[in-house]
Design a protein around this nucleic acid. Structure first.
Lengths: 202, 202
DNA sequence: TGCAATTTTGCAGTGACTGCACAATGGTTG
DNA sequence: CAACCATTGTGCAGTCACTGCAAAATTGCA
């Protein structure tokens, strides 16, 4: 056990344990999928490797996908907060580019973890749809955050939602492009994609 | 048994029966979901209503979603063919707009069926992701068709794929906009969305 | 009518996911 | 330290989508 006093946040033993369990599950999922492939890994195996019961797995993640991607409820809140925090004059597309990019290259401690996550994401077609968007809740939240920042009445036009959907779609497209052996590096392609969106599609 | 000599296509009894079974399953799925909601309908119930065994259901549709949406393998072929058939000079986005619009308002015989499909699609959030795209195969096929028509080497750049993803995303956004009680009519919003994409996102 | 190809079906199984009730554990108060 | 309450972990039983397999049933054809 590390003697490190846990870097941040509330420090009840309870809180720490929960955090640790979530991390363990995410890591277990990542390791197993990396080694065996997404389809060959069961939620039971992930739970076992993390040292919790099969039932507990679902107390932490709503689905197998979520565990692999490390999607938590907090993440959604963080994302929307990040969007609302962008400077007022910034074009929505620019904000989205930053925030979505953040999701792909999360600054989460471990360099090793990040690499593994990226490798898996690019290797498993089953995960691409889930990573960004696909869950309507995410898209809704981001859209609402954007509308709030722009000061328009939510749902008064399709505009904000279309912008969000197109941006998310573009990121997904870049990921799938890699999966299909397309040219270029991921980050560079994402850059190009957003430029394309800004310039107007033909 | 109808004495109608079956409108088109090969007319073996076998072929006709298959067609009829597929239709029966699709209708059964639509009716049940319309009446009870997507979550409350089981594949078994759909099969029973269509007069086939539970196992046979999966000989016709790969998933519950597919049965409700009426997604067949042929549809994919039709869509890509439609794209390749568009005039050479037409901007890709315009082609996509036409072809994707076709998917939403399919000219399939029944006016009643069309209305029901539309109603369900707009009522069930679970279906929006599946309708257009989400299945990577669809997006891949459309992208390749587009690249073929444009005469570029497949996968040589992200451009075509980003265009496809953005267009699909826009359509999905419009559907979700309706689901969330947003303003305007679906077709009009789709028009606006494509104009927005063409003009360039801010 | 009889044979071969296709389709249907039953069966048994896997695995994701859920609700429920009870056990274990952490935090808190006297 | 002990008693108590709120959270959290776990086992159990169940539902349901989806799959492979092998045995019927059906169709097309000679």
């Amino acid at each position: 056990m590390p003697t490190q006093p846990a870097s941040d946040d509330t420090c009840g033993l309870r809180e720490r344990k929960k955090r640790e369990t979530r991390r363990a599950l995410h890591h277990a999922a990542l390791d197993l999928v990396d080694a065996l492939g997404y389809a060959a890994v069961t939620t039971e195996a992930i739970a076992e490797r993390a040292g919790v019961s099969a039932r507990t797995f679902f107390n932490y993640f709503g689905s197998k996908e979520s565990a692999v991607l490390g999607v938590t409820g907090d993440q959604l809140a963080e994302t929307t907060a990040a969007i609302e925090a962008r400077p007022e004059g910034e074009p929505p597309l620019a904000s989205l580019r930053l925030v979505l990019g953040e999701l792909l290259a999360p600054a989460s401690a471990d360099r090793d973890l990040r690499a593994k996550r990226r490798r898996i994401l690019l290797a498993e077609p089953a995960l691409a749809p889930a990573l960004v968007g696909n869950n309507i809740r995410f898209e809704n939240a981001v859209t609402e955050a954007l509308e709030r920042r722009l000061g328009v009445r939510p749902g008064s036009s399709v505009e904000a939602r279309v912008t969000v959907a197109a941006a998310i779609g573009a990121v997904r497209a870049c990921i799938e492009h890699q999966q299909n052996g397309g040219s270029g590096r991921l980050e560079r392609n994402i850059e190009l994609a957003f430029e394309q969106l800004a310039a107007g599609l033909r």
